[in-house]
């Protein structure tokens, strides 16, 4: 996957992972992919819902040793 930017939001509690994701996403062009790492348990449902409401596409997510990883493609 061609990742344009990686955001480390590990150790941050809600709402910071989304606040940072939103900011990082602003700097990307439509179609580019942002990779996000987070440890907050709520990040999964929140990022999924946020991506949907913002018109972005959650391409993939996985858990690796307590770290949740997300790949979100910026919408038009």
């Amino acid at each position: 996957m061609n990742v344009a930017k990686t955001l480390d939001a590990t150790g941050l509690a809600c709402p910071m992972p989304i606040v940072k994701t939103k900011k990082a996403m602003k700097e990307l062009e439509a179609g580019e992919i942002l990779e996000i790492h987070a440890t907050d348990q709520g990040a999964k449902s929140d990022l999924t819902a946020w991506a949907k409401s913002g018109g972005h596409e959650l391409l993939q997510n996985e858990e690796d040793n307590g770290v949740f990883k997300f790949w979100i493609k910026k919408g038009e």
């Binding site: 809600c14 989304i18 939103k22 819902a49 409401s53």
Partner: peptide, 13 residues
């Protein structure tokens, strides 16, 4: 006697 409004925080940033 509670009333509710549900708006996700990420829509209020």
């Amino acid at each position: 006697n509670f009333s509710y409004l549900n708006v996700p925080y990420f829509d209020l940033l």
